[in-house]
Amino acid sequence: MSRRGGVDVRRPAVYLGLAGLLALGTTLVPTSSAAAPPPPVVAAPAPAAPAPDCDQVVDSLRPQGPLPEPGAMPPGTTMATIQQRGRLIAGVDQTKYLVGYRNPLTGQLEGTDIDIVHRIAQAIFGDPDRVQFIVYDIADRVKAVEGNEVDLVVNNFSVTCARQRSVEFSAPYQLAQQRLLVPKGSGIREVEDLAGGTVCTSTGSTTERELEALPVDMEVVTEIGIPDCVIRMQQGAVEAVSSDDIILAGLAAQDPQTEVVGRVLATAGYGVGMSKQAPDLVRFVNGVLEQGRDDGSLEESFRRWLGPQLDPAPPPEPRYRD
């Protein structure tokens, strides 16, 4: 079969066939690069378990004698440390209208709770503006006190015995009643009307537990702050918002198409939250609050902010455990 002198068809055919096969091979081998990895899935944080209940709220610490002169805090006290620092560090809220809110026209924090902070700064420095405000979410208030991030928290902080394990409260300076905020004309008058519906409150608040304890078949959803609940109600995602009347009054004032309805579901007393390691500061703050109670300026502040919305109760009489 040797074709020494003949025309060789085989070799050119092999060349072409091989080239054709290889060329075909290159088009069959997948060359596209690997697909991009899928975006990471962000897991929602698990809700914190509610603190176990306890029975009895204990009374606060009695003020010791008359208040020291502003700007002359006794050496060695917590107040002296604050005075040396030059400013009081207070944990507050800035979204609760008339209570603790940032006035968007001035950028300043205002409201009943803010007045109390200024009152304490006045007593320490003789200057109500020596304050650094730090805003905390409702759920982070206890942590702020425990971690000594602030000197005190004034932010609708209800005195409860569960919180008293980690926070020393002043005597309550204001009483609040838990009720409902609903759209006008919704027909909802009482919490029972919410059966099968959805109600919103803030994460980590006492209201959340009060609502869940009610024998009404409703869904309780939570947002970081009560105003976020109102936005959801305005957007039609929830039927009602539950919180303290004082907070709801400020919200009703911002949206005239809402109203506060229903019986009182629970009552609470707001106190100034402080560290358990600073009993001297607690006694001092109780003294400052007593002064405001006695000269009527505390009630006057409540009336000035909340008067047009609700008839604010006068500050409750303090009780001390000494």
């Binding site: 025309v7 060789d8 070799r11 050119p12 060349y15 072409l16 066939g17 080239a19 060329a23 290159t26």
Partner: peptide, 17 residues
């Protein structure tokens, strides 16, 4: 690759012939 292989094969075949 496809073009180069085909072309080279073709060239080899033509040169061979």
């Amino acid at each position: 690759l496809a073009v180069l292989l085909l072309g080279l094969g073709l060239l080899a075949a033509v040169v061979d012939l």
